[in-house]
Simulated assay, not measured.
Amino acid sequence: MQNKSQLLKGVLEGCILKIVKHKGETYGYEVVTEIRNFGFGKCTEGTIYPLLTRLEKRKSLKSEKKESPFGPQRKYYSLTQQGEEELSEFENTWIEFKYFVDGILKNYKGV
């Protein structure tokens, strides 16, 4: 599948928004860890950090640098109102697409 990378980035953006909403406030490496824990084991920091930056530039996330007990300051992300709206749209679209794709895959099973 040629556009697997683009599809994955779009899905990961929605997943990142959901993780940040659930956590309330979180830093990049924690997002990477959560993504991996849910089965995206091959996702690296090099995949997730650019998506965090893109979401921040789009104003879906806001960030704040805070002291860390384990070294240098960390950049903590939280959801903006725009991010809430984007997440809601992602969730609705995902449910709809999943329903359609599942229907096709089940209907043409074994073909």
Rank of each mutant, 00 (worst) to 15 (best):
E25G: 09
K66E: 08
F97M: 12
K109T: 09
Y108P: 01
K106F: 08
K4E: 15
W94R: 01
P72G: 09
E89V: 08
K23G: 02
G71I: 06
T80L: 00
R74T: 03
L8T: 10
I104F: 11
E89F: 13
L17Q: 02
K98L: 09
L105P: 00
N3H: 14
V31T: 00
Q6L: 14
T33C: 05
F100C: 08
E25Q: 14
T33E: 14
G14P: 00
K21A: 01
K21M: 02
Q2A: 03
I48N: 01
K59N: 11
L12W: 09
E13Y: 06
E13I: 03
Y49P: 02
H22A: 15
G41N: 10
D102L: 15
N37C: 01
Q82M: 11
S78E: 00
V101P: 07
T26H: 03
G10Q: 10
T33Q: 15
K62S: 15
K9Y: 07
P50M: 04
L17P: 04
L61Y: 04
K42Y: 09
T44I: 00
T33F: 10
L55F: 02
E25I: 10
R36S: 04
K9H: 12
G110L: 06
K4S: 15
E67T: 08
G39Q: 07
I95Q: 15
T93D: 11
I95T: 13
L51I: 02
I35D: 03
Y27G: 01
S60A: 14
K59M: 10
V31S: 04
C15Y: 01
L8G: 04
Y49M: 01
K66F: 01
Q82R: 05
C43F: 05
E13K: 13
L7M: 13
S60K: 13
L79T: 05
F97C: 12
Y99G: 14
E34L: 08
L12S: 04
Y49K: 11
G46P: 03
P72E: 11
V11W: 06
D102R: 13
K23V: 07
P50W: 01
W94M: 01
K9D: 15
F40G: 05
R36N: 08
C15G: 11
L61H: 03
V11I: 14
Q82A: 12
L8S: 09
G39A: 07
S88R: 08
P72A: 08
Q81K: 10
Y29F: 10
F100D: 13
G14W: 05
K9R: 15
Q73R: 12
Q82F: 02
V20R: 04
K21D: 05
C15N: 11
G46E: 08
E84S: 14
K66D: 02
Q2L: 09
E67N: 05
L87I: 03
R36H: 07
R54Q: 09
D102G: 11
G71E: 00
E56H: 09
K106G: 10
I48Y: 02
F70A: 06
G24Y: 04
E84L: 13
I95C: 09
T47F: 06
E67R: 06
K42P: 00
Y108H: 13
Y99V: 08
H22S: 15
N92A: 11
I19C: 05
F70S: 11
L61A: 03
S60W: 10
N92C: 05
Q81T: 10
V101M: 12
E25D: 09
W94D: 00
K62N: 14
S60M: 15
E30L: 07
T80N: 04
V101D: 05
R74F: 06
